[in-house]
Design a protein around this nucleic acid. Structure first.
Ligand SMILES: [Mn+2]
Ligand SMILES: [Mn+2]
Ligand SMILES: [Zn+2]
Ligand SMILES: [Zn+2]
Lengths: 138, 138
DNA sequence: ACTTAAATGCAACACTGTTGCAAATTTATG
DNA sequence: CATAAATTTGCAACAGTGTTGCATTTAAGT
């Protein structure tokens, strides 16, 4: 039995050592409801080491704590994963939505994945990125 | 009335001066049926200037000659646009498919764009990337 | 052919991300 | 609790991708 903090869960479930730095990163993610850039993380952190941040993000991605979102002509962003993600296996049935007003990127769960029937092509995974105006800015 | 080369069309339609270098780039694209990386372009070119290539690609994108394809964890690739694209307005109703066998990225036209009903979110454009096995490798 | 405008080539630089290694932290062990 | 082993951190150096400024070359218009 350990502490009561939310991220202790994440760290034990995802098999990651709960260092001070890592806890700080997770709490930065938990304070936002949208995906964030390394720039935003670095602003939220005080003085810190750039390289350690990169290594932490990489570890988090590999262990299913966060996922990376790559939209054309945008900086990469990162968002917390669902519980089920682990070990580099990301189990997302969701799309990414970039609001052109607030410029935020949101993860949106889909009731069901859309089907694409491309004869003779076998589809194994898909990625959907939308742009428009979010519910808050609408 | 000018020459008979295919790319003369492109250049006059898209309002771009037909220099030797640019013609060479277009013919490299025309020789492939899939999207290509800058690395592949540079191999196809002989001795050349890296910066001029970047500037050419940028110009081609801005004027609707090619479009840039950004998949997570992949190098960017580029492919020729449809005729209708021009002036930074890309009119694609197609998705991108990365084959995990031949590793090529294909542009695939869709009969119709899928609809996403996200109440209170206004969808203005979408981007769909699939992974799997292409018809040739299947 | 001459003039003007645009494209090219080169140097320098910025940004993002990685690697090697020594010092500091964490975890496991007696 | 003290010590040893394993990980993580911080720093320096470097690699890849893309941009900017500027002098030179090339193409277009007269
Ligand atoms: Mn997401
Ligand atoms: Mn395409
Ligand atoms: Zn918004
Ligand atoms: Zn294939």
């Amino acid at each position: 039995m350990q502490h009561c903090c939310k991220f202790m869960d994440i760290f034990s479930k995802k098999n990651i050592r709960p260092t001070t730095f890592r806890k700080e990163i997770v709490s930065i993610f938990e304070a936002k409801d949208h995906a964030i850039t390394t720039k935003e993380i670095e602003e939220a952190l005080g003085k810190h080491d750039r390289i350690t941040l990169y290594r932490t993000l990489k570890l988090f991605i590999e262990n299913g704590v966060i996922h990376e979102i790559t939209l054309p002509n945008e900086e990469k962003t990162y968002a917390l994963c669902e519980e089920e993600c682990a070990d580099g296996e990301h189990q997302h049935e969701h799309l990414h939505f970039k609001c052109e007003v607030c410029e935020r990127i949101y993860c949106i769960e889909l009731p069901q994945a859309p089907q694409f029937d491309l004869k003779n092509f076998i589809v194994k995974s898909m990625e959907i990125n939308l742009r428009g105006i979010c519910d808050h800015c609408n």
